[in-house]
Design a protein around this nucleic acid. Sequence first.
DNA 1: CCCATCCGATCGATCGATCGATAGGCTCAG
DNA 2: CTGAGCCTATCGATCGATCGATCGGATGGG
Lengths: 186, 186
Amino acid sequence: MEDAALTLFAERGFHGTGIRQLAEAAGLSSASLYHWMGTKEELLARLMRQALTRLTDAAVADLAAAPQDDPRTRVAVLVRVHVREHALRRRETRVVDGELAALGEGTRAEVLDLRDTYEQLWAEEIRRGCEDGAFTVARPDVARRAVLEMCSSVARWYRPDGPLDVEELAATYVDLTLRALGADPA
Amino acid sequence: MEDAALTLFAERGFHGTGIRQLAEAAGLSSASLYHWMGTKEELLARLMRQALTRLTDAAVADLAAAPQDDPRTRVAVLVRVHVREHALRRRETRVVDGELAALGEGTRAEVLDLRDTYEQLWAEEIRRGCEDGAFTVARPDVARRAVLEMCSSVARWYRPDGPLDVEELAATYVDLTLRALGADPA
DNA sequence: CCCATCCGATCGATCGATCGATAGGCTCAG
DNA sequence: CTGAGCCTATCGATCGATCGATCGGATGGG
């Protein structure tokens, strides 16, 4: 159910997807759908929370598994997990990034909080890297947004069945990101 | 009329904006609206074409005005005009980037053609820079998409009334882009 | 017997779009 | 100068379709 909804929301958008389309894609009547979905907006919010929580969990786990303390290494870890998730779970990302406006005020604030929590992981490593000279950026906040969005953009064009392997893709983005941050290549 | 529609489409999305909201924002009845708008989708397509044409024209003009032949200089020109347009015309950009799926097949192809025309300006300079050694990137196509999306992202967070001046912003993005491309700092 | 699951039927609201009518200004023959 | 004819711009009313959501009632395994 949730899987079919994710596909439709990603392809047609929240407002562009009707209850009856969701029901058909799930193989249910629109009435039955409400047993699983709650309201349409609650479904959207649940999908968004799941996606953001999963991304944050993956990033925290990979950071914890990395023995290195060097901000360059840790940013590289963040880029890799981010690119992997965005390349392999494009639907989730497109919905999270594109349908925030469809949420009610309270729910939107809640989802934005989850996003902030994730982005703080990046902010912390970039801040440390700037302090100890590993990175050279005039405006760390602008740089953080820039590289984050750069890495997110893979969800908008990458195709896993294309000629480019996900790990090669991630490695390319690690290079782009570290260079953009002016990483001292030590 | 078109201006009010742009605001609504950018804030609520195409499918999230009703005919009656468009009419109210334009100070007309929904019936009168159709004299100016054509169908709702024709209005969207017109807005998109205008925005993309304007962006391309600005980029071509700025490139022509730049005496330099160095790919680094020319990419810097592209970044500056791109960031300026995206920072000062956020509504247009958000609609072009976010509502492509709302277009019919024929119109979408047409708009995508306009976008391709614009992106070819970037592709050409990046290709030249890679050939003559000004840039060092493993995959020019991936790099082009990455830096383009990085620069586009300003439309999603920048506020012209904030503490950061547009030209400072553009300069920061020139740095980020040239470094990501591995520009030989000559 | 109950509870989870499903459905057909249907709710009021709103959707995008069109209708015929009207009001005002411009043109041009008489 | 007049007035008939036309064009542009506007409107209230309304079209059929679809929207998100809910109802009461099946069905069937524990």
